[in-house]
Each structure stands twice: as C-alpha cells, then as structure tokens.
Design a binder for these strands. Structure first.
Lengths: 155, 155
DNA sequence: CCGGTTCAGTTGTATAGTACAACGGTTATG
DNA sequence: CATAACCGTTGTACTATACAACTGAACCGG
C-alpha cells in the first residue's frame, strides 16, 4: 500500500475529496449516536473553550470559520445548559471571556472519553504507526492555509 | 515524520478525532464557497446517482446512513432543479430508478472540476506519494465497518 | 385468492446549524 | 469629540436532518 508513487495525483485527489466529504456527511450522525446529549458543534466549541482556558466568542468564530451569530447562539445554548459561563472582561467591556463550568468540564470529559472509545474501537486494527501517520496527514491537511481555497467572496 | 512508532496510540486517536471533526465542521462551508449553486448533500447524491448509472432512493439512504425522508426531499430538490429524473421500474412498481439528466451530468461535471481544483490547490505542496497514502488512509477509515461505532439502537 | 407483513417512497412536524443583515454598546483613533 | 472599528445579540430565512404516520405495491402463508 505504501508502494512506489504509481498512483496519479488526480486519482488520489478524487479519493480524498470523496472520502473527506463522506466523512463529513456521517460525522454529525455518528457524533449524535455517540453522545446524544451534547451536539457536535456545542461539543467542539466547549472543547475549544476548555482547551484555551477561556476565550472570546470572536475567537471561536474566526477559528472555526463560523459567523458570529452562530457562535453567539451556540454559546447561549451552552450557557443555558449550564456548561459554560461568561465573565465580562474587566479591561474591555465589549468582550465576554468564556469558561467551562464545573458541570461543563465534566460533561466534556465524559464526551471525550466515549468519543475516544468509539474511535479506539473503530481504529482497533490499525498499527500505531499508521495511526500516527494518518493523524499527521490530517493535521497537515487542516493546518494548510485555508487561503488555498477560494475563500474570499465575502458575499 | 514517518519515524519509528514513537507516538502513542491514544495521542494519535485524539488528533484524528479532533482533526476529522474540524474538517467536518468546515466541509459544508467550504463546499458552499466552491460551488454555491449545488449544496453539498445534493452534490454528493447526484454524484452517486451518476456513478451508479441509476440507483434507487433506498440505496442512497443506506449507503449514506440517511433517513429515507431526507433522501426523498433531496431527490425532490434535484428533480425540481432538473438535474435528475425518476423512471418507474417496470418490474417493481414501488421503486423509482434515478438517473441524472443531461443538465445534471453537466452541472456535476462542472462541480467536480471546480472542487477538484480547490483540492488541487490546497494540496499543491503534497507529493504524489503522500497524496496516495492519505487517500488510502481515508478510504480505509471510511470503509471500516461502521459497526465499530455504537451504531445499533434502532430507537 | 385473501390477509398480514414487508418494502419504497412521501409528507407532517420538529430540531440543529448556519448565514446575512440590522442593531446597540464599547473602545480606539484622528 | 466624532467617526470608525469592534463585540456581541437578535430577527429572519434556509438547508439538512430525523422520527412518525401514512399510501401503495409486492410478497407469503394458508
């Protein structure tokens, strides 16, 4: 499988396109099955908030290419669920610094555990080496400057 | 980067989980940017219909893990746009065999071209070998039996 | 051949996620 | 200070999706 560069670029690109799209299509459903209580996006945002140890809504929006209104509502939902709290920044009255509540941290940990378990199960047959390389490829793909896409067009 | 199996499985799984999720989050927006006229799911279904040279709605549903109602509406949309046509199967009056119209084939080809171009651009720096391997990993991931996930629960 | 079951697809209803546009406060800058 | 830039909310609309209830068609056992 690691053979010698015989596959034409275009064929690989086609597969990558199709498979990434296929993954995208299924991701939400899978996420919902794994942890119905915490919707995919909320989960992701909560994880980011937690990972950053406090961040602003705008940060989330730019990081995930989401509209501010989307983030605003997602955060509102998370707050309504008691998973995050907003602390007004003392220095800048416009911004709200988001932090996970204790409950939020717990829910997040639980969700992370079960999702990790699902991946663990799914990728059971993979060697550690393949896992590492697949992860590296994904990382490389995602961190590639999004300017590679015809991003532009602010509508 | 292809080094010797030093990365623990769990770390890789964590990255894979996060990066696949990140990708999923952005996929739709990216697709919309690349080809606003043909929504992501419609595009995918149209591509499948085209690739299969005629298929049933149920096939789409099972293949993509979608509810039949979802497929029904998507197909209805595609039909309304004049991109697919339904031909009642002569042998079984229940099924409708879906085929792309001429317009549908054209739109599909155009969308495929521009999406491929976007990927081409984005993955410009990748060697053919890396592309082939990334594609292989994705394929392997997606074709892994979904039974690995807590699929079950017919609700 | 009739009645129950299974299968294909549609429609009603509800929900998540998202965008865009318009707005209200807040801070920064000329 | 006035205007611009910025942060977040809210109104509105749309896509994608699921579940449930339903219609019609086909199959199956007696």
């Amino acid at each position: 499988m690691t053979g010698g560069a015989e596959v034409p670029r275009e064929a690989s690109l086609d597969v990558i396109q199709r498979e990434l799209t296929a993954f995208a299509r299924r991701a939400r459903a899978a996420a919902a099955r794994v942890h119905p209580e915490l919707p995919l996006v909320s989960y992701t945002l909560l994880a980011h908030i937690d990972g950053q140890r406090g961040c602003r809504a705008t940060d989330l929006a730019t990081h995930y290419l989401l509209d501010k209104s989307t983030v605003s509502r997602q955060v509102a939902t998370l707050e309504r669920l008691g998973l995050v709290e907003r602390r007004p920044a003392p220095d800048d009255h416009r911004v709200q610094v988001l932090h996970p509540t204790e409950a939020g941290a717990e829910v997040l940990a639980s969700a992370q555990t079960s999702r990790l378990a699902a991946y663990q199960e799914r990728l059971r047959d993979w060697s550690a080496d393949d896992l590492a390389q697949f992860a590296a490829y994904l990382l490389r793909y995602n961190t590639a400057s999004p300017s590679g896409l015809p991003d532009s067009s602010p509508h």
